[in-house]
Amino acid sequence: MLQQILALIVIIFFVGRLFQQKKKKQINRQELSLWLIFWILAAAAIIFIHRIDQLVARLGFSGTAINILVYLVIIALIYQVFRLRLTLARLERDLSQINQHLTLRNK
């Protein structure tokens, strides 16, 4: 119970920071929504951790809900890193095109 309360306090802190960032226009509306959904889902997972435990057991997994959540988060992180790699590759490609254009124009 204490762990759940602590985890929720951490989430409230980050949600507060999120609104501060929006107020300072450091993030846009879309980013705010995305992160808000993420933190709401995290809070829901913490509040209903025992129900998720039961669900996980019913689905036949040997681990607890928290294990499954950690696995899911790792998968989500790997996916995000991959997306980031693609974005970087696109930026690199654009950079090379600009570089080539400048080189040939200045010749």
Binding site: L95, S96, N99, Q100, L102, T103, L104, N106, K107
Partner: peptide, 16 residues
Amino acid sequence: VLRHIINRGQGAALRT
């Protein structure tokens, strides 16, 4: 001589 203002790699240089 064609000059790339930044290093982009051998493939990019060959393309230019």
